[in-house]
Computed example of a mutant assay.
Amino acid sequence: MSPYMFLLLIGLPLAGGMDSSIIGGKEAIPFSRPYMASIQRDKYHTCGGMLIREDYVLTAAHCLDRGNIEVVLGAHIINKAERSQQRIPVTEQIRHPSYKQNDENDYSNDIMLLKLKKKAKLTRFVNLMPLPKKNEKTPANVKCSIAGWGLKSPKGNKASYVMQEVKLKLEENSKCEEMWQHYFNPKNMICSVSDGKHAFCQGDSGSPLICKKIPQGLASYTIKGDCTNTTYPQVYAKISYFLPWINKTMEMNE
């Protein structure tokens, strides 16, 4: 059976509900990830992202389309009006030009820049995440971490709204290609493997995968309805591959 039958792009499809989750994780130390962004459509959390410049957030291309889009920075509990928070409207969604939004056979280039209406004020709660230095091979079996907001169980029905984090291990590209076939492109994707208990899930699209303090990937897709599936690796856009596009786009939109 084609893996597409199971594939799930993991942004939240509906603004009226919150169904995101870091599975098998734990509550993050409050404000320990000052680069994290909650991307919200009509005041509801939709995806994660990271602040890479005072006026730009990096996330997954499939996350957003219509609605009143805002970014919330400096948050730990996103349904509380924490003094640390900064809520900034998004003025432009800049998807990678090769991203094929409605092509169900191509999930590569799943990366997007969000231009903010005003610059974020950098504080101990809100800060930038430096990008990787260059496009290089990311070794397998390295332990990484990813954070986001939402449910602690894939079958839960009430969000905690508290930032959760989980540790995951990178998988060999050859294994990702074997399982995902043409859906996985080793040139611009990396993947992690679930042990059946720990995973990212729906609503965590765009959240950065941090390996040795460096953001290597943006959460992109996983198995539909089974985020902790141990057979099919979870897939991320490989940030370092897109460095030329990221830097050029920000320079052109000064």
Rank of each mutant, 00 (worst) to 15 (best):
C63P: 01
C63S: 03
L64V: 05
L64S: 00
L64Y: 10
D65R: 05
G67R: 05
N68V: 11
I69D: 00
I69W: 03
I69T: 04
E70Q: 10
V71K: 09
V71D: 09
L73P: 03
L73D: 02
H76N: 04
I77L: 12
I77Q: 09
I77M: 11
I78N: 10
I78Q: 07
N79L: 13
N79D: 14
N79Q: 15
K80R: 05
A81K: 09
E82F: 01
E82H: 01
E82A: 02
R83N: 15
S84T: 15
S84V: 03
Q85W: 01
R87T: 04
I88Q: 12
I88E: 10
P89C: 14
T91E: 12
E92Y: 12
E92M: 06
E92S: 08
Q93H: 01
R95Q: 11
R95F: 09
H96V: 09
H96Y: 06
H96D: 12
P97V: 07
P97R: 00
P97Q: 02
S98T: 03
S98W: 14
Y99V: 09
Y99D: 12
K100R: 11
K100I: 00
D103R: 07
E104P: 00
N105C: 14
N105W: 08
D106S: 06
D106K: 09
D106W: 01
Y107H: 06
S108T: 13
S108P: 08
N109I: 04
N109F: 08
N109E: 10
N109K: 07
D110Q: 02
D110A: 06
I111F: 00
L114C: 01
L116I: 06
K118P: 05
K119L: 06
K119W: 12
K119S: 10
A120K: 12
A120N: 09
A120G: 07
A120E: 10
L122E: 10
T123I: 06
T123M: 08
R124M: 11
R124L: 13
R124T: 14
F125A: 11
F125Q: 04
F125T: 03
V126D: 02
V126I: 08
L128E: 06
L128T: 00
L128S: 06
L128V: 03
M129E: 14
M129V: 07
P130E: 09
L131N: 03
L131D: 03
P132Q: 00
K133M: 13
K133V: 12
E136M: 01
E136G: 04
E136T: 13
K137L: 12
K137D: 13
K137T: 14
T138G: 02
A140V: 10
N141F: 08
K143D: 11
C144V: 01
S145V: 03
I146D: 07
I146N: 14
I146K: 11
I146R: 14
A147Y: 04
W149Y: 15
W149T: 03
W149F: 15
G150D: 04
L151K: 14
L151H: 13
K152G: 11
S153V: 02
P154D: 00
P154Y: 09
P154A: 02
K155S: 13
G156C: 08
G156I: 15
N157D: 15
N157Q: 10
A159T: 14
S160L: 02
S160P: 03
Y161R: 10
V162R: 00
M163L: 08
M163Q: 14
M163N: 04
M163C: 05
